[in-house]
């Protein structure tokens, strides 16, 4: 009896031990590269590769150099403008479309939904050649409006699906009773259903906002002059030249992007977990 008891107790100890060992190891693996990048931003001198060491001279000079010696400030503003426009236009389009697909039964609805699902699978960035030819024809090479247009359009099929999935989870009774009270199409949409979809709209807005910050391929391809770059292509120029790696500047620039984006991310994190499961399982 006591023997059995002991073995159970020791096995529980091992479970605990390995659980915490795993959690700590994973935490270290995650934090190590992030800390390296973050700390390099405050190191003096032209370091060309980073590691985690603390015997350096600490300084804020990299941030000053970032804004005076490079085009980082302009890249940041470019990216913010592209991100805001993309976010606002895309959220409006997918909210209207998602709402309609969820609430109305009309001729062509099912076919449209299948169509969106199919189009969503096409790797849109892969049609690079066509974008190039279109940009040539429109004189849109090196123009950010064309890039915004592609970001907005590329996200529509998938995000409309997710939006529709979320609208499906909002009970229909409310808009039914409003309809009986004589509320019109716009009033039901704007005053009754829309407020309840706020969590999902916030998530979609965040995703649309983050796209231009992280997208590299299209931006690199369409934007040709350095003063028009977004932060992703701009920062890459700091470390893509093996002869002249500006790792400290890269890290400083990276921090200024990572911190606000991560804060937004954690603020909305609860929303998108529920949005993700609702959109993913409801179909």
């Amino acid at each position: 009896m006591s023997n059995l008891f002991r073995s159970q107790k020791s096995s529980r100890f091992f479970t605990k031990f390995f659980t915490y060992a795993f959690l700590l190891l994973l935490s270290v693996i995650i934090l190590y590269p992030l800390l390296i990048t973050a700390s390099s931003a405050f190191k003096a001198g032209n370091i060309s590769a980073f590691d985690l060491s603390f015997d350096a001279t600490w300084t804020l000079d990299n941030f000053r150099r970032l804004f005076t010696e490079t085009l980082y400030g302009e890249w940041y503003i470019n990216t913010l403008v592209i991100a805001f426009v993309t976010m606002i236009v895309q959220v409006i389009l997918i909210t209207l479309a998602g709402y309609t697909f969820s609430r109305y039964r009309f001729i062509g609805r099912k076919k449209s939904l299948m169509f969106f699902l199919l189009v969503q699978m096409i790797p849109t960035t892969a049609t690079l050649v066509a974008f190039y030819v279109m940009a040539l024809l429109l004189g849109a090479l090196d123009q950010s409006w064309f890039l915004m247009f592609l970001y907005i359009g590329g996200g529509i099929p998938m995000n409309t699906w997710l939006m529709k999935g979320y609208f499906d989870t909002i009970p229909y009774d409310l808009d039914e009773s409003a309809k009986l009270d004589g509320a019109g199409h716009f009033r039901i949409f704007a005053q009754i259903v829309l407020p309840m979809a706020k969590p999902m709209i916030a998530v979609q807005a965040l995703w649309a906002f983050m796209t231009p910050f992280g997208e590299y391929m299209l931006a690199k391809f369409l934007l040709r002059s350095p003063e028009n770059y977004t932060v992703a292509i701009g920062l890459h120029t700091f470390i893509s030249n093996p002869q002249e790696q500006k790792v400290a500047l890269f890290s400083a620039g990276a921090i200024l992007i990572a911190i606000p984006i991560s804060i937004l991310f954690f603020m909305l994190q609860k929303n998108f977990v529920s949005g993700l499961t609702a959109g993913g399982t409801k179909g």
């Binding site: 995650i30 934090l31 590269p33 992030l34 590769a49 890459h236 790696q245 990572a258 984006i261 991310f265």
Partner: peptide, 25 residues
Amino acid sequence: FGIIFLLPWAVPAFITIMSFSNMFN
């Protein structure tokens, strides 16, 4: 732990990829 494990998703991927690229030099 939950917050730490979310960090790789929260930090924009292109930043971490470039950092890793340098780390694997």
